[in-house]
Design a protein around this nucleic acid. Structure first.
Length: 117
DNA sequence: CGGGTGACAACGT
DNA sequence: AACGTTGCCACCC
């Protein structure tokens, strides 16, 4: 049997976490990393998604930057593709970002305050 | 070995 | 909202 490198294991954990994101919702790279057991490895998530390509098996479009920000340059083909897929799942979008739902109390996250959403 | 880079995040100004 | 800095880690010169 071939040796499964730690890199491959981590990639598998990340893809699993991404597949677990429910339709109509989205998570940040950092949150995906945390759920994959790799806290602080947000960049690794991006790297794995990039090399994983666009598989129907992997809902990469449900992974956004912090606060729903789309990681791709606004207007780029990839950004539009991601926004369109999110919108099709019922996620509200505006500009180059997905709108983060606020809780019932109307409280916004600390980051949302920083980003003036 | 050292430095730059990147589908990032958090904090400060 | 816009930058600059730092932390993070895999890769590539």
């Amino acid at each position: 049997m071939e040796n499964v490198s730690t890199a491959e294991k981590r990639a598998a954990a990340i893809r699993k976490a991404v597949r677990a994101i429910k339709r109509g919702s989205f998570l940040s790279y950092g949150e995906v990393a945390r759920r994959a057991g790799l806290p602080g490895r947000a960049r690794l998530v991006g790297q794995v998604l990039r090399e994983s390509g666009d598989s129907p098996n992997l809902p990469w479009h449900r992974v956004t930057g912090a606060g729903g920000r789309i990681a791709f340059p606004a207007g780029s083909a990839s950004a539009r593709r991601q926004l369109q897929r999110l919108a099709r799942e019922g996620v509200e979008t505006r500009g180059n970002r997905a709108i983060v739902k606020r809780n019932a109390a109307g409280a916004r996250s600390l980051d949302a305050l920083l980003w003036k959403l």
